[in-house]
Amino acid sequence: MFFVLLFLRSGQLQKGADQQNKPIQLQVFLHYFLHLVFPFFIAFLFFRKEWKKVYLILLATMLVDADHLLATPVFQANRCSLGFHYLHTVYAIAVYFVLLFLPKPFNIIGIGLLLHMLADLIDCMFMFNHCKVCLANAPAIEVLKAIANFFSPHLSL
């Protein structure tokens, strides 16, 4: 929830030309923080005896982005990966959730994959907050609108 509130707040940072890049810097920082640093804290705090192994497993779940190689074009600015790439669909996310209830290491893999989806969701929210037209045809547009309306109901989306 903290990260969603940060994205909403970032829209207010674009008031002056000197601050134009701050939302993008915050977006990049949060994205990589959630992919690289936050897994360390999860591993160290909740799996202290085997934190190194757990951290490596959590980092390995970033291989879920291999499905980006199947997209045409492989990279497209302002593309929300949620719902677009095969391993970022609602069905895949449901499987990742089920992994949480399986024994180690599957539950750790589920944590990593869901954390990855959260990072991508926050990334999509930043994009949506700064360019609603860019994501008009995104598969996750209704989810993004619902989240934005939930946290900021006074906005007209």
Results as ranks from 00 to 15, higher is better:
Phe2Gln: 08
Val4His: 01
Leu8Asn: 03
Leu8Gly: 12
Arg9Lys: 10
Ala17Gly: 07
Gln20Asp: 13
Asn21Leu: 12
Asn21Arg: 11
Lys22Met: 14
Ile24Ser: 01
Gln25Val: 06
Leu26Glu: 02
Phe29Gly: 04
His31Asp: 06
Phe33Lys: 08
Phe38Val: 06
Phe40Tyr: 04
Phe40Ile: 07
Leu45Trp: 15
Phe46Ser: 10
Arg48Ile: 12
Lys52Asp: 06
Lys53Thr: 10
Leu58Val: 07
Leu58Trp: 03
Leu59Ala: 00
Asp65Met: 14
Ala66Trp: 08
Ala66Cys: 13
Asp67Trp: 15
Thr72Val: 06
Thr72Ala: 06
Thr72Trp: 14
Val74Thr: 14
Val74Met: 15
Phe75Thr: 12
Phe75Met: 11
Phe75Lys: 07
Gln76Asp: 10
Ala77Gln: 14
Asn78Asp: 13
Cys80Glu: 05
Cys80Ala: 14
Gly83Ala: 12
His88Asp: 07
Thr89Cys: 11
Tyr91Asp: 07
Ala94Trp: 08
Leu99Ser: 13
Leu99Asp: 11
Phe101Thr: 02
Pro103Glu: 05
Pro105Ser: 03
Pro105Met: 04
Phe106Glu: 03
Asn107Gln: 12
Ile108Lys: 03
Leu115Met: 14
Leu118Ala: 07
Ala119Tyr: 00
Ala119Asp: 06
Asp120Ile: 00
Phe128Gln: 05
Asn129Ala: 07
His130Thr: 02
His130Ile: 10
Lys132Tyr: 15
Asn137Leu: 11
Ala138Ile: 03
Ala138Thr: 04
Ala140Leu: 15
Ala140Thr: 11
Ile141Arg: 03
Ile141Asp: 06
Ile141Ser: 03
Ile141Gly: 02
Val143Tyr: 00
Lys145Met: 09
Ala146Asn: 12
Ile147Cys: 01
Ile147Trp: 01
Phe151Thr: 10
Pro153Thr: 02
His154Leu: 02
Leu157Val: 08
